[in-house]
């Protein structure tokens, strides 16, 4: 199902709900009660979703006077808007945001490129080994992340000729402490290859044949004809990759624990925990959290449909 289909379906259902006259049957009153209950439930759930976020935004604005009052005040009596400025002045936020942007954008671009190319090959060519390559893409998705943390860490550490290592990978620190260590292990996403393959199979064969008859090279066909036709899929994958890697922290923390200059927003905020003992600092932490959530929130507001369609595609295999 494409994004467009999904929206058509939904619009359809909304129209039906809006115009479908309630059937004049005995259950009518009960149905009206059910109709109201529906929104009560959804609103209650929505509050549970939003309140924790609101709690942090509000907490960031509390002054020490609010915190030390007895009992502590929940709503700040004198909102400390300056805390958002202090976050940038007192924490290396600029560095973290820079690293987050560099790492996330690079991974996103690389993943979209590798997924599109591989998906295109699997969808539209017949070649010896295709079935096995496809099996690999599906099968590799089953290996959980925790299996790879230790071996990849040391494969990067002992990468030959990198970071002062000799040809046998000894003597230096290898790729640890470089952006490459944060990006390379995520250069390919099996899910992304799978997703792109699904989309490429929907392109009409005549378009490709026509281009081939005109003498277009395979790369040109891919670049000029296939890619523009799957823009929604590219956007879906890009948004998905961006959000995932903007938020990723286990791998990045493992690699950058000893390299603070490479830490991203979530890692930086996570490793600060021990410095947030006194209550004034707590507000600072809450403000930093709020700032870290903001960029994806904006992206989400602008491109919600692509992100939602990403989780749909993963389910409707």
């Amino acid at each position: 199902m494409t994004v467009a289909d999904e929206f058509a379906l939904e619009a359809d259902a909304d129209v039906r709900a809006a115009t479908g006259a309630p059937a004049p049957r005995p259950g009518r009153r009960r149905r009206q009660a059910m109709g109201a209950l529906k929104y009560v439930l959804l609103t209650f759930g929505a509050l549970l979703m939003v309140l924790p976020f609101a709690d942090t935004f509000i907490g960031a604005l509390r002054s020490p006077a609010d915190v030390f009052a007895n009992p502590p005040r929940y709503f700040p009596s004198d909102p400390q808007w300056g805390v958002y400025g202090r976050v940038f002045a007192e924490l290396p936020m600029g560095r973290w945001i820079f690293n987050s942007v560099v790492v996330t954008v690079t991974i996103t671009v690389v993943q979209v490129a590798t997924s599109a190319m591989a998906g295109w090959a699997l969808a539209r060519y017949e070649f010896p080994g295709r079935a096995n390559a496809f099996r690999l893409v599906v099968g590799a998705q089953m290996f959980p992340f925790f299996l790879f943390v230790i071996p990849i860490f040391f494969l990067l550490r002992f990468a030959p000729l990198a970071g002062g290592n000799d040809i046998l990978g000894q003597g230096g620190s290898g790729l640890l402490g470089t952006y490459a260590a944060l990006v390379l292990p995520f250069a390919v996403t099996w899910y992304g290859v799978f997703l792109m393959r699904q989309f490429f199979t929907t392109i009409p064969e005549e378009l490709i044949e026509a281009a081939r008859l005109d003498g277009a090279s395979e790369w040109l066909i891919f670049r000029r004809i296939a890619l523009p036709l799957v823009r929604p899929a590219l956007a879906t994958l890009a948004v998905f990759a961006f959000v995932y890697h903007w938020n990723e922290f286990i791998w990045t923390m493992t690699i950058t624990r000893t390299a603070p200059e490479l830490q991203t927003l979530p890692v930086g905020i996570f490793l600060l925990e021990n410095q947030f003992q006194d209550l004034d600092q707590k507000a600072l932490q809450q403000a930093a959290l709020a700032v870290s959530v903001l960029p994806v929130l904006v992206l989400f507001a602008l491109a919600q449909r692509f992100f939602v369609s990403a989780s749909m595609e993963s389910a409707v295999k």
Binding site: E10, G45, V50, E248, F249, P266, F270, K282, L297
Partner: peptide, 26 residues
């Protein structure tokens, strides 16, 4: 639907670091 979905999707776009701390406060 779009509005409800956006609200219920909020946690999905948040890092586990932020979620952990936000809930620690709650």
């Amino acid at each position: 639907k779009a509005a409800w979905r956006a609200i219920y999707y909020l946690p999905q776009i948040t890092s586990f670091v932020a979620i952990a701390y936000i809930w620690q406060f709650v």
